[in-house]
Simulated scan of single mutants.
Amino acid sequence: MVKILVVEDEYDIRELLQNYLENEGYQVVTASDGEQAIEVFRSSHVDLILLDILLPRLNGYEVCKAIREESDIPIIMLTALDSEEDQLKGFDLRIDDYIPKPFSMPVLLRKIGAILRRTMGDSISGRITYKALTLDLEGYKVYISGQIVDLTQREFDLLKVLLQNQGRVLSRQTLLNRVWSYDFYGDERIVDTHIKNLRKKLGLDYIETIRGVGYRIDYEAEK
């Protein structure tokens, strides 16, 4: 199930968004200030963030900047600040969309759906397909041309994150944050070891090493 983090300090708006999204089949977690938003992001695997700007403790721009140091997760800013300067500041921080308040719920849902299709592909329906690969997200199974491949949970999660971010270079630290979360303290080169094992098991050259930066799975060419 797709999980969305709603970051909004006004209770009524936060509750409205949560109820509406849950009625549409999304799983929702919430935060009421900037510091809590970062804590929830780091402790819960979420697929998209709806982020207000005018927040206590840390504002939305500061939250976005902190998250962007760790992840390329889709972020939509929902805010009463609608000036061109505010919008440009958000896009400079690599947000995916900027929606001024008041906003239309049906339009917001369409935008969420469009961004998730772009970033997650078939994973919304419980699977990811890429060339000869198929990932069954609910069964934690990987198939190559219909033949099952035995992966560890970490290898599966690592492959899933790379496929969900096709075309993006993910640093070792980003992969540690997304796959290991707080379960690992040590040398980030453990990512290299898992990538090596993953390549060996898959027998495919889909994972590209970007020297000095990290790893990437490129966009699948149009058929």
Rank of each mutant, 00 (worst) to 15 (best):
Val2Leu: 06
Lys3Ile: 00
Ile4Trp: 00
Leu5Gln: 01
Val6Gly: 02
Val6Thr: 07
Val7Arg: 01
Glu8Cys: 06
Glu8Lys: 04
Glu8Pro: 06
Ile13Ala: 11
Arg14Ile: 08
Glu15Val: 07
Glu15Ile: 04
Val29Asn: 02
Val29Asp: 04
Thr30Asn: 06
Ser32Tyr: 09
Gly34Val: 01
Ile38Thr: 07
Phe41Leu: 00
Ser43Met: 12
Ser43His: 12
Ser44Val: 11
Asp47His: 12
Leu48Lys: 05
Ile49Asn: 07
Ile53Trp: 05
Leu54Ile: 13
Leu55Glu: 00
Leu55Gly: 00
Pro56Glu: 13
Arg57Trp: 10
Asn59Lys: 07
Cys64Ser: 11
Ile67Phe: 01
Arg68Lys: 14
Glu69Trp: 03
Glu70Ala: 04
Asp72Ile: 01
Asp72Trp: 04
Ile73Met: 10
Ile75Cys: 02
Ile76Asp: 01
Ala80Leu: 11
Ala80Gly: 15
Asp82Gly: 13
Asp82Cys: 11
Ser83Gln: 14
Asp86Gln: 13
Gln87Trp: 01
Leu88Tyr: 11
Lys89His: 13
Asp92Ser: 15
Leu93Tyr: 05
Arg94Ala: 13
Lys101Tyr: 09
Lys101Gln: 13
Ser104Gln: 05
Leu109Val: 00
Ile112His: 00
Gly113Ile: 04
Ala114His: 11
Leu116Asn: 02
Arg117Ser: 14
Arg117Gly: 10
Arg118Ser: 09
Arg118Lys: 14
Thr119Gly: 01
Met120Tyr: 14
Met120Glu: 07
Ser125Met: 14
Arg127Gly: 06
Thr129Asp: 11
Tyr130Ser: 10
Ala132Arg: 12
Thr134Phe: 10
Leu137Trp: 01
Leu137Val: 00
Glu138Leu: 14
Glu138Tyr: 12
Gly139Ile: 02
Lys141Ala: 07
Lys141Val: 04
Lys141His: 08
Tyr143Ile: 04
Ser145Trp: 08
Gln147Met: 08
Val149Ala: 09
Arg154Met: 11
Leu159Phe: 11
Val161Pro: 03
Leu162Asp: 06
Leu162Val: 11
Asn165Gly: 09
Gln166Ala: 03
Gly167Arg: 01
Val169Trp: 07
Val169Cys: 13
Leu170Ser: 05
Leu170Glu: 06
Ser171Thr: 15
Arg172Pro: 02
Gln173Cys: 08
Arg178Ala: 14
Arg178Thr: 05
Trp180Gly: 03
Trp180Glu: 13
Tyr182Asn: 13
Tyr182Ile: 12
Asp183Trp: 03
Phe184Asn: 00
Tyr185His: 13
Asp187Thr: 06
Asp187Asn: 15
Val191Phe: 10
His194Phe: 14
His194Ser: 08
Ile195Asp: 01
Ile195Met: 02
Ile195Arg: 01
Lys196Met: 12
Lys196Ile: 14
Arg199His: 07
Lys201His: 06
Lys201Ala: 05
Leu202Asn: 03
Asp205Ala: 15
Arg211Leu: 11
Val213Cys: 01
Arg216Lys: 14
Arg216Asn: 01
Arg216Ile: 09
Tyr219Thr: 12
Ala221Ser: 15
Lys223Gln: 12
